Amino acid sequence: MINKSSAGPDVLAPFTEHRRLLFATAYRMLGSVADAEDVLQDAWLKWAQADRGSVRNPRAYLVRTVTNLALNRLTSARATREAYVGPWLPEPLLTEPDVAEEAELADTVSTAMLVVLESLSPLERAVFVLREVFGYSYAEIADVLDRGEASVRQTAHRARGHVQARRPRFDTDAEERREITDRFLAACGGGDLNAVMEMLAPDVTAWSDGGGKVSAARRPLHGPDHVARWLLGVLAKPASADAYARPVQINGELGLLWYIGDAVLGAVTFDLADGRIQNLRLQINPDKLAGVQEGHTGGTEAPAAP
């Protein structure tokens, strides 16, 4: 939480004005709500201590600060993620419906895209986010990262190629997604194995991220039978009669939140192909559910390029 008590209005105004952009940058860089918030806290401290009279462009200064803080954090996080228990999935984030309706924006913050971005090096990820998401010029990115423009161009080309090769291509129709989500929810709630299997693509894959904190599959599951049986087993575990699920906008697309009472138990996101669920991701690590708590709709919009 950023301490505003000692900050005068002149200090606070630029940071407040650009906070959503700064969070959006950090979140896409890190795939973590908690880490993005930590980066903003550190950026705020740097901004409060800076010689602001010499800062001609507060927005550029803040973006540069956040990008480099996120880059440093992402580099150091690599070793931690290599030792992670089971599959590592990004932290899900509630997104506002009006933001989710922007198809291009929704794609840049989707869980599928964040998973793809994990395959990039930290530098490639920084360049890709600044260039492809926020539309910065190569010269501006070179200034942000303190690198030569030619080097930035090469990195951007390499990153774009990696993303295009790994990026899932699924057409998402909002009405169809809503209808499939409702049917899937009903099938899971009814405990009907065959009904759940019918909702899954023949080559469906499911990942669950428990982080060693809660029971989860340590490896991806493949095929409708394995995935459906695992899903129904997971959903059958909560003994509380208060367990339920509801559709919500997660990372720019309609997904599901599972609850026990008022507590979020897990978040489900998925890709669709030919009217069936192709890839399914279940985030149940309790340490990675802050972004799907009620009232948390972090800055996910992509403002116009500078």
Rank of each mutant, 00 (worst) to 15 (best):
A83Q: 15
A83E: 12
Y84M: 14
Y84D: 13
V85K: 11
V85R: 10
G86Q: 09
P87M: 09
P87K: 05
L89G: 09
L89I: 05
L89W: 03
L89E: 12
P92N: 12
P92T: 12
L93M: 15
L93S: 15
L94I: 08
L94V: 00
L94D: 02
L94M: 07
T95N: 05
D98E: 14
V99N: 11
A100R: 14
E101N: 08
E102M: 00
E102F: 04
E104Y: 04
L105C: 13
L105E: 15
L105Y: 10
A106Q: 04
T108L: 08
V109D: 14
S110W: 01
A112K: 12
A112F: 06
L114F: 08
L114M: 11
V115K: 14
V115Q: 14
V116D: 12
V116A: 12
E118F: 01
L120R: 15
S121K: 02
P122Q: 14
L123K: 08
L123N: 03
E124R: 13
V129P: 07
L130M: 07
R131C: 03
V133R: 10
V133P: 05
F134W: 04
F134Q: 09
F134L: 08
Y136Q: 06
Y136G: 05
Y136A: 01
Y136P: 00
Y136F: 00
S137Y: 05
S137C: 05
S137A: 11
Y138G: 05
A139G: 08
A139C: 06
A139M: 02
E140K: 06
I141M: 09
I141C: 01
A142Y: 01
A142V: 01
D143Y: 00
L145Q: 07
R147K: 10
R147L: 02
R147F: 02
G148N: 13
G148W: 02
E149V: 00
S151T: 12
R153T: 02
R153K: 12
R153G: 00
Q154M: 05
T155A: 03
A156Q: 08
R158A: 07
R158M: 01
R158Y: 01
R158L: 00
A159T: 10
A159M: 09
A159C: 02
R160E: 10
G161Y: 02
A165K: 15
P168L: 13
D173C: 05
D173G: 13
D173T: 11
A174D: 03
E175R: 13
E176M: 08
E176T: 08
R177H: 03
R177E: 11
E179C: 03
E179S: 07
D182S: 00
F184P: 02
L185W: 01
G189V: 11
G190S: 07
D192E: 10
D192L: 01
D192M: 02
D192T: 04
N194I: 09
V196L: 04
V196H: 08
V196Y: 08
V196C: 00
M197K: 04
L200K: 09
A201Y: 13
T205V: 15
W207K: 11
W207L: 08
S208E: 15
G211R: 11
G211Q: 10
G211S: 10
G211W: 06
G212T: 03
G212E: 01
K213G: 05
K213I: 05
S215G: 14
A216P: 06
A217S: 11
R219V: 07
P220Y: 11
P220L: 10
